[in-house]
Computed example of a mutant assay.
Amino acid sequence: MRLNKLRTLLLLFLAATLLVGMGMGRAVAATAAEAGPAMAADSSYVIGAGDLLAISVWKNADLTGLVPVLPDNTISFPLVGELVAGGRTVGQLQEELARRLAQFVTDPVLSVVVREVRSLMVYVIGKVNKPGRFELNGNITVLQGLALAGGLNPFAERNEIKVFRVEGGSEVIPFRYDDVAEGGSLAQNILLRRGDTIVVP
């Protein structure tokens, strides 16, 4: 029963996130020249949902602009249509775009830059004082994630906490707060990964 309740709560949260992401639109938002400095130019950076990409094709203003990566990890780009960006490196996406554009543009010269890194996030929902989305700066454990959310509220089921992990395959990881807080089971205090959702029933 509790697991069903947790799954329902998580599904509602993910649905809300998807609706917000869809509101961003699939169209190219603006020219890359109008944006601020790039946040990630490393071709080995793995793109994630929420990141904002600056894609430009040399001497083609219609194929230059800012493109958001939607919650389903896809982007939409003129001529190319929809393709998966999340989970690929910047270099891999650039190669795929060049391959597809070659059907319409002779020898396309393009660049892909992550203009804003927005995918390095974790989520804390349920009976905490400040539920929400938090940036994953460095190594953050489950306890630290709960602290970012203002800690547990008095009605939280402290030993029924779950970490829902989507990176590398779906996984539900139990977390017993009292065991960890008392120093008896520190192995449960795992490092959070991109996209993790901590659910406190």
Results as ranks from 00 to 15, higher is better:
Leu52Asp: 07
Leu18Pro: 00
Glu157Met: 07
Ser44Phe: 12
Gly50His: 10
Val114Asp: 13
Asn60Asp: 15
Thr8Arg: 13
Leu192Thr: 00
Ala27Asn: 09
Leu93Lys: 05
Val67Ile: 13
Leu18His: 08
Leu191Tyr: 06
Leu136His: 01
Lys130Pro: 00
Val180Tyr: 04
Leu97Val: 11
Phe13Arg: 09
Val90Phe: 15
Leu19Lys: 13
Gly126Glu: 03
Glu167Tyr: 02
Val200Ala: 03
Ile161Ser: 00
Lys130Asp: 02
Leu146Thr: 03
Val46Ser: 04
Ile161Arg: 00
Leu11Phe: 12
Leu12His: 11
Asp178Ala: 00
Ser111Gln: 15
Ala29His: 07
Gln144Arg: 08
Pro131Ala: 07
Glu135Arg: 06
Arg100Tyr: 07
Ala181Ser: 04
Ala156Phe: 03
Val112Leu: 08
Leu110Trp: 06
Asp107Ser: 15
Ser76Ala: 11
Ala85Leu: 08
Leu136Trp: 02
Ile125Trp: 00
Asn4Thr: 13
Asp179Ile: 00
Glu160Gly: 02
Met121Trp: 05
Arg193Glu: 15
Ala147Lys: 01
Glu157Ser: 12
Val180Gly: 00
Ser43Pro: 12
Glu171Thr: 05
Arg193Val: 03
Glu171Gly: 04
Asn159Met: 01
Asn73Met: 12
Asn159Leu: 01
Arg133Gln: 14
Arg88Lys: 11
Val112His: 02
Pro201Cys: 03
Gly21Gln: 12
Val117Leu: 09
Thr74Gln: 12
Gly151Gln: 02
Gly91Ala: 15
Val84Gly: 08
Ala27Gly: 11
Val114Glu: 13
Tyr177Trp: 12
Tyr123Ala: 10
Thr17Lys: 08
Phe155His: 05
Thr141Phe: 07
Leu148Arg: 10
Ala41His: 09
Leu53Cys: 07
Ala29Lys: 11
Ile140Lys: 02
Leu14Val: 09
Ala29Thr: 06
Thr31Cys: 02
Leu66Val: 10
Arg165Asn: 06
Gln94Tyr: 04
Lys130Phe: 05
Val199Thr: 05
Leu101Asp: 14
Ala156Cys: 05
Leu11Ser: 13
Leu79Glu: 08
Gly151Lys: 00
Ala29Asp: 03
Leu146Asn: 03
Val124Cys: 10
Ser185Cys: 04
Phe175Gly: 00
Gly151Ile: 06
Asp42Phe: 05
Val114Thr: 07
Ile75Leu: 12
Asn189Pro: 01
Ser119Lys: 03
Met22Ala: 14
Phe134Val: 03
Lys59Asp: 14
Ser56Leu: 11
Phe134Glu: 03
Thr31His: 14
Phe155Glu: 03
Ala35Gln: 07
Val200Phe: 01
Ser170Tyr: 13
Asp178His: 00
Val124Leu: 06
Met24Trp: 12
Val80Pro: 11
Ile75Phe: 11
Gly65Asp: 08
Ala61Asp: 14
Leu143His: 02
Val57Tyr: 09
Asp72Leu: 06
Ile125Val: 12
Ala27Trp: 02
Arg133Cys: 00
Thr197Pro: 01
Ala27Val: 11
Asn159His: 01
Val180Ser: 01
Val142Cys: 04
Ala149Phe: 02
Asn189Ile: 04
Val117Gly: 09
Gly184Phe: 08
Lys127Ala: 14
Phe13Ala: 09
Lys59Val: 04
Val180Ile: 09
Ser76Met: 10
Thr197Met: 02
Arg7Ala: 04
Ile125Pro: 00
Gly169Tyr: 07
Lys130Ala: 14
Val117His: 05
Thr74Pro: 09
Gly132Phe: 09
Gln188His: 04
